[in-house]
Simulated scan of single mutants.
Amino acid sequence: MKKILYLILILICTSQFCIAQECTIYIPNTVGTELHYEMTNQKGKVLGSYTQKLLSIKNKDDETIYSMLHTTMDGNSADKILMQDTITFRCKGNEFYIDMDQYLNEKQMEAFQNMEVKVITDDINYPANLSPGQKLKDGSITVSIEGGMMNMSFTTNITNRKVESKENMDTPAGTFKCYKLSEEIQSKTGFVNVTMRNVIWISKDIGTIRSESYNKKGKLTGITQLVKIVK
C-alpha cells in the first residue's frame, strides 16, 4: 500500500512538473499560417501594412525555435514589398522569448556590411501564466559599428513591461481573448533619443491583435491591428 501511495505521489509531482514546463506561445502554432496587419495614424489613415507567416518550428537542444517571415508592404501599393526579414521566437522551459533582433532594420544594416558590427541582445519573454498586475522582464538591443573614422551605436530598451488586464479585443479579423500589456521604449542613435509608450493586446497561439503607440506626452501616434488570418 505504501508503495502504491509513493508511486501516485511521484506521478502527481511529475505531472505538476510537466505542466510547469509548458510554454504558452503568442504566435501561430501551425506552419503556413499568415497574419495580416494594417497600420494607421491616430486619425485612421492607412500608412502601410505587413504580414507575418510562420515558416518553421524546429527543436534544438532544449529549445523550440519558431521562424516567421515578416513582409512590409508599401502604404501606397499593397502589392509592393518594401522589406522582408525573418524573425525568431523561442520556447525554453516554460517561457516564450521574442528575439530582439527584430528591432534591427536589415535594409539599413546592409550599409554597414563592410564594417565591424557587434550586437548585444537581452530578449524579452513571457512566462507560461500571465495575470493582471504582473511585471515582465525588460529587454534591450545594442548595436555597435566600427569602421575606421566612422563609429556609431544604436540602442533600444524596452522597460516597464506590465500586464494591465485580461479582456476581449475586436478587430476586422474577429474577436479575441487577450492580455493587455503596456511598455516603454527608449531608442538612442548617437545623440538622438526617442521615447514612446506602447499598449499591446496579445492572444495565445496567435500573437499581437492590436497595438497603440503614444509619444512621451501621451498622445496617440499610431495603431496597428490584425485584419486577417490566413491558414
Rank of each mutant, 00 (worst) to 15 (best):
N157I: 03
T221M: 00
D205P: 10
Q42G: 05
M83A: 13
T40V: 07
T171A: 03
V227W: 03
E110D: 08
S182D: 02
T14N: 03
Y50A: 13
L226Y: 02
E146Q: 10
N193M: 08
T72C: 15
L226D: 01
N215T: 06
D101C: 11
N59G: 13
L47C: 03
Y97R: 04
M109N: 04
K177D: 04
K137D: 13
S182P: 07
F96H: 14
F191A: 14
G190M: 06
R90A: 10
T30E: 03
L35W: 01
I206G: 06
V163N: 01
Q84D: 12
F154E: 10
K219F: 12
D85K: 14
S187Y: 02
K216P: 14
T40P: 01
K80A: 15
M73R: 07
G218C: 08
L9N: 07
K188N: 07
L5D: 09
V199Y: 03
S153I: 12
Q84I: 14
V163G: 00
Y97D: 09
K118W: 15
T221W: 00
T24G: 04
I124H: 07
K231D: 14
K180E: 06
V31E: 03
E116D: 00
K204L: 06
L7A: 15
I25W: 00
T51V: 05
K3W: 02
G139I: 01
F176T: 05
M109E: 10
N215L: 01
I209M: 13
L35V: 07
M100E: 03
W201V: 00
N193I: 09
G147I: 00
P172H: 06
T221C: 02
C23W: 02
T72I: 15
T86E: 03
H70F: 15
Q21T: 13
D79W: 08
I158D: 08
N114I: 10
T72E: 15
K231W: 13
D85F: 05
K92M: 11
S144E: 01
T208S: 14
K92E: 00
C23M: 13
K228Y: 09
K216N: 11
K135M: 07
N151K: 02
T224G: 11
S67D: 15
T64R: 09
K118T: 09
Q16C: 02
D123V: 11
K2S: 11
T171K: 03
K177P: 09
V143P: 12
K60A: 10
V192M: 15
G48A: 06
K217G: 14
T71S: 12
I57C: 08
T14H: 10
Y37K: 07
T155G: 12
L7K: 11
D122K: 14
V163Q: 02
Y6R: 00
N160I: 04
I65C: 13
M196Q: 10
K118Y: 07
L35M: 04
N168P: 12
T30L: 09
Q21S: 14
T64F: 05
E212D: 11
K135C: 05
N59T: 09
L9P: 00
G218P: 08
V163C: 03
G32S: 10
S182K: 02
I185P: 06
A20G: 03
Y126S: 00
M196Y: 12
M150V: 08
E164I: 15
H70L: 14
S131K: 13
A20F: 01
D122E: 11
M149C: 14
E63G: 05
K231L: 13
Q52C: 09
E22T: 08
D85W: 05
P28Q: 09
